[in-house]
Computed example of a mutant assay.
Amino acid sequence: MPLYAQETSYIDVMGVMIRVDKDRYTERQGAGTRATFGWQTSGNWFTEVQLFGVKVDRDSNLALYPQLDTTQVGTPTAIIDSTNFNPGLVSGTMGAATSPYIYTDALKPSGDLELSGLGVDVVYHFSGREGYSPFVLAGIGASNNNTEYDYGPRETNGFLNVGAGIVSGALSSRGLKVRAEVRYLRDFFATDMSDYQFGIGISIPLRCPPAPAPAVAYMPPAEPEQVVAVDLDDDGDGVLNQKDRCPNTLPGARVDEYGCVIADQTITLENIQFEFNSATLTARAEASLEAVVQSLLSQPDSLIEVAGHTDSRGNDDYNLRLSAQRAESVRRHMVSRGVDATRISSKGFGETQPVASNATESGRAQNRRVELTFR
């Protein structure tokens, strides 16, 4: 059964509505876009880099240019009359480096506002982005407030934001999802601004999981016919058929006098391959697992752990995560074929338990394996 693996990286694109602080002297609402690139850090923890931009119009209820108390270096304080103010360059002792107005410490932005920002967030997904997953986030960044007046270097400031939202389950065969969120943003511009942003858009996994296969109703295997034979041992476990209470024993497994696998032993599964750099089982691997499923169904009292292993090539953390995902893929397939989910668990060991040298291709092939351990 194909598996919807938790994506390890993704891109989200959202439309954004913003409600800005009243001290910005603009309309209270505006709109824009946000794009995020996220990747799994550990378990349900993710890191996201966000880039956003919004536009807010001039407040039509305010005068075109409100009076401003301005101070120019080397000159007395002056009052700019809104009826005579020219947004062009103001002459003065600053010479060529003049500005539309010179500000005091109490900055009063007004007019149209173009607000953009670049930041980094830490995100916790309560369901690990599998199925519908609510999340919370917090992060920092830098913002740029492009207003009608030139604030020079003080247009770029830091910001803090916190938020919450939800990501849907996969809605298409390519794994596309819907993301909705709300954020509080504290922008350290002028007297500090408190804004709220509401976003909704699509989430695009960078590794697209396959579409789920139609559910297949499980039919329990028919009771094996009792064959009266003195010298037959169909599963080759050393126990004759008429005495074998656990038929279909896996090759190489040690059994008790009744043909049932004894505990505390590990068996390496043969012909279990995955799609390149993923946890998706190949069609050949699914066919090979059918014999394993039949063996486990014939031994209902055993507890099993599926262990995934890799060779030493690649990043240690990546290998550990990939081996865990592959072991879980095998476990889910066997559960989908009727093995009781309470009997079987999975664990990844990455490259930590090699059985051969990683210096040769044949050794690396032996190290890339899936094992069953009977408890």
Results as ranks from 00 to 15, higher is better:
Gln242Cys: 08
Ser203Asp: 00
Asn358Ala: 12
Pro109His: 07
Arg364Pro: 09
Gly43Met: 07
Ile267Glu: 03
Gln197Ser: 10
Ser168Ile: 04
Ser329Cys: 07
Arg313Pro: 08
Thr266Asn: 00
Ala327Ser: 11
Val330Glu: 01
Gln353Ile: 06
Ser127Lys: 15
Gly88Arg: 04
Phe126His: 09
Arg321Lys: 15
Leu296Ala: 00
Val90Leu: 13
Asp105Phe: 09
Gly74Ile: 04
Pro247Val: 01
Arg326Glu: 03
Asp235Ile: 02
Pro210Gly: 09
Gly119Ile: 12
Gln67Cys: 08
Thr104Ala: 02
Asn248Gly: 00
Arg19Phe: 10
Phe52Pro: 05
Gly338Asn: 05
Ala285Val: 06
Asn44Thr: 10
Gln299Ser: 12
Gly38Cys: 06
Gly53Pro: 11
Ala222His: 04
Thr75Asn: 11
Asp234Arg: 14
Ala96Trp: 05
Leu176Val: 06
Gly53Ser: 14
Ser336His: 10
Thr93Leu: 15
Thr282Lys: 02
Ala253Thr: 01
Pro354Ile: 04
Phe188Gln: 10
Gly92Met: 12
Met193Leu: 12
Pro205Met: 00
Thr352Val: 00
Tyr25Gln: 15
Gly158Pro: 14
Leu115His: 10
Gly15Ser: 04
Leu296Asn: 03
Ile79Phe: 08
Ala213Ile: 02
Lys22Leu: 01
Gly139Asp: 05
Ser323Pro: 00
Ser329Asp: 01
Val136Tyr: 02
Gly128Thr: 08
Asp57Lys: 14
Val306Cys: 05
Tyr318Phe: 15
Val20Met: 09
Ser194Glu: 04
Arg326Ser: 01
